[in-house]
Amino acid sequence: TYTWNTKEEAKQAFKELLKEKRVPSNASWEQAMKMIINDPRYSALAKLSEKKQAFNAYKVQTE
C-alpha cells in the first residue's frame, strides 16, 4: 500500500507512474488511463481533475 503525506508527493507518485508505464506524451487521457488504472498509484490523486492536471503537466514535461 502506498501513502502520501502531501498533495505534492501524491502528484509526484502519479507522474512517476506515467513515466514508468511509458505513457507517450501524445497519448489521450483515455489511452493513458487504460495503461495506468490497475496500479495502486492511480489513486494517489483522489479527484479526476487532479489526475488530468498532473497528466497534462507530465505531457508538457516529456514533449
Rank of each mutant, 00 (worst) to 15 (best):
residue 10 A to K: 08
residue 5 N to Q: 13
residue 46 A to P: 14
residue 55 F to H: 03
residue 33 M to I: 08
residue 58 Y to T: 03
residue 14 F to L: 02
residue 46 A to D: 12
residue 42 Y to W: 13
residue 8 E to C: 13
residue 48 L to C: 12
residue 11 K to S: 15
residue 4 W to F: 05
residue 38 N to S: 09
residue 32 A to R: 00
residue 28 S to W: 03
residue 10 A to E: 08
residue 28 S to P: 08
residue 15 K to I: 14
residue 58 Y to V: 02
residue 5 N to D: 09
residue 4 W to V: 06
residue 31 Q to M: 07
residue 20 E to D: 14
residue 62 T to D: 09
residue 20 E to Y: 07
residue 9 E to H: 03
residue 37 I to E: 12
residue 1 T to Y: 14
residue 52 K to M: 11
residue 3 T to P: 15
residue 7 K to M: 10
residue 32 A to Y: 02
residue 53 Q to D: 13
residue 5 N to I: 12
residue 24 P to T: 04
residue 24 P to W: 02
residue 32 A to T: 06
residue 36 I to Y: 01
residue 11 K to E: 15
residue 27 A to S: 11
residue 61 Q to D: 13
residue 8 E to Y: 08
residue 42 Y to F: 10
residue 19 K to F: 15
residue 37 I to M: 12
residue 9 E to L: 04
residue 19 K to C: 14
residue 2 Y to S: 12
residue 5 N to T: 11
residue 62 T to G: 10
residue 59 K to Q: 10
residue 36 I to K: 00
residue 46 A to K: 12
residue 20 E to Q: 08
residue 17 L to C: 09
residue 35 M to E: 06
residue 30 E to V: 08
residue 29 W to H: 01
residue 33 M to E: 10
residue 37 I to Y: 11
residue 2 Y to Q: 15
residue 33 M to C: 13
residue 34 K to T: 11
residue 45 L to H: 01
residue 43 S to Q: 14
residue 59 K to N: 04
residue 52 K to Y: 07
residue 63 E to S: 13
residue 9 E to R: 01
residue 47 K to T: 14
residue 12 Q to N: 10
residue 60 V to P: 04
residue 52 K to S: 03
residue 21 K to C: 09
residue 51 K to F: 04
residue 18 L to W: 01
residue 55 F to K: 02
residue 39 D to K: 00
residue 42 Y to D: 01
residue 3 T to F: 13
residue 56 N to K: 11
residue 45 L to T: 01
residue 9 E to D: 06
residue 36 I to A: 02
residue 24 P to F: 03
residue 25 S to N: 11
residue 6 T to H: 04
residue 7 K to S: 06
residue 48 L to T: 10
residue 26 N to R: 07
residue 6 T to A: 02
residue 37 I to Q: 08
residue 10 A to C: 09
residue 59 K to A: 09
residue 43 S to K: 13
residue 18 L to F: 03
residue 5 N to P: 09
residue 43 S to P: 06
residue 32 A to G: 05
residue 6 T to R: 01
residue 38 N to V: 07
residue 27 A to R: 02
residue 41 R to F: 01
residue 34 K to R: 13
residue 16 E to A: 12
residue 42 Y to S: 02
residue 27 A to Q: 04
residue 56 N to G: 08
